[in-house]
Simulated scan of single mutants.
Amino acid sequence: MTSEQTSRGVTFEVQLTQNCGLGLEIIDRSLAMGHRITSVLSALKIARSTYYQWKNWHPSQQETHRRIFTVHFEH
């Protein structure tokens, strides 16, 4: 494996961990195709706890207020 291939893999892993929406979409599609959750998470190098943290995430009250404020005052 070349360093270029390694960096591509690491970049993809970083993108997944920084973008839970992308990770959840990939995982949900894989599950819909009949793959087991343990196999999918292992292949993507995502901890099971991270997956469930993503699935159960809800914005805090402060985050919700911040989004409303930003949308309201940007327009």
Rank of each mutant, 00 (worst) to 15 (best):
V40Q: 00
F69C: 07
T38N: 09
I27N: 00
T64H: 08
Y51S: 01
Y52D: 00
T6R: 15
G23D: 02
H72S: 06
V10Q: 12
L41A: 03
L44I: 02
T6M: 15
A43Y: 12
T6K: 15
F69I: 07
Q18V: 01
T64N: 12
V71G: 08
N19H: 10
G23N: 01
T17R: 15
R67A: 09
S42C: 11
A32F: 07
T50K: 08
R29I: 04
E63V: 06
N19W: 07
Q53Y: 12
S3C: 09
T50P: 02
M1G: 14
L31F: 09
S49I: 03
R48H: 04
W54C: 01
P59I: 05
S3D: 15
W54N: 02
R29M: 09
H72C: 08
L44R: 01
E4Y: 15
T11S: 14
R66Y: 08
Q18E: 11
M33T: 10
M33K: 13
F12N: 10
E4D: 14
A47N: 12
K55L: 10
F12P: 06
T64F: 11
G23W: 01
W54S: 03
N19P: 11
F69M: 08
F12L: 14
F73K: 09
F69V: 07
S30G: 10
R66E: 11
S42I: 02
S42F: 08
R67Y: 06
L16R: 01
S49V: 05
G9R: 13
F69E: 10
H58I: 12
H35D: 09
S7L: 15
L16D: 00
C20D: 06
Y51G: 01
